[in-house]
């Protein structure tokens, strides 16, 4: 019975992840369409983004995905403290990602580049679309990072109180799946925005 419940919860989580894939997939389709139409403007927009910040955020998310996967292994080995430590490291990296993003967006805002700004309205139309997509997609992704961080924090607390343990870890596993999906989406965001120059 326990095993059946576990399978149901995992399948349910994957079904939810499929809707997330279609959600971001749809946004990427819009991106592809406009990239096709405004190749030059998209290259200019990409060149203006901070490649170092983007690469750093990629490294942070990839590493945090590793620590989340490792925390599940640690829990299954029965080493709760290591599992919590690894989750703590993941949460820290997720927070650093958001801080980095905050400074990145902030720098763009200072240059008058934000949705509906007068600066963009005067420039080429393709550039407005590039930044519109940039803010929509990275913003929606950032929201997912925040939700993921909440889930990981809840997991950490539940391990602490003993509600998640070696033989009852499905909540951690599903939260991990969510965090990996956030990483997966970033893997596509990174080249589409930062490397199109």
């Amino acid at each position: 019975m326990e095993q059946l419940d576990r399978t149901g919860k995992k399948v349910g989580m994957w079904l939810f992840l499929y809707t997330e894939i279609m959600l971001f997939g749809g946004l990427f389709v819009i991106y592809a369409n406009y990239h096709h139409r405004y190749i030059k403007e998209f290259a200019d927009g990409g060149a203006a983004l901070n490649l170092v910040a983007g690469t750093l955020n990629t490294v942070l998310l990839l590493t945090s995905s590793f620590t989340v996967a490792a925390s599940i292994s640690a829990l299954r080995k029965g080493t709760q403290k290591i599992a919590m430590g690894l989750l703590g490291a993941s949460i820290l990296m997720g927070l650093l990602f958001l801080v980095n993003k905050y400074f990145e967006w902030g720098a763009k805002f200072e240059h008058g580049i934000y949705p509906g700004s007068a600066e963009l309205a005067e420039g080429p139309h393709g550039l407005t679309i590039f930044y519109g997509l940039y803010y929509t997609i990275t913003g929606l992704h950032g929201l997912h990072v925040i939700i993921g961080l909440v889930l990981l924090s809840v997991c950490s607390t539940l391990i602490w109180t003993g509600r998640i343990h070696q033989s009852k870890d499905i909540f951690l596993e599903n939260s991990g799946l969510y965090w990996h999906l956030v990483d997966l989406i970033w893997i596509f965001i990174f080249p589409l925005f930062y490397l199109v120059a």
């Binding site: 490294v59 590793f66 996967a69 292994s73 990174f190």
Partner: peptide, 19 residues
């Protein structure tokens, strides 16, 4: 079954190299 840490670490190294 738990995945060994070194397998997961190898995946991370691969991901960083591809980046």
């Amino acid at each position: 079954h738990p995945q060994p840490y070194r397998h997961l670490l190898a995946v991370l190294v691969g991901l960083l190299a591809l980046t």
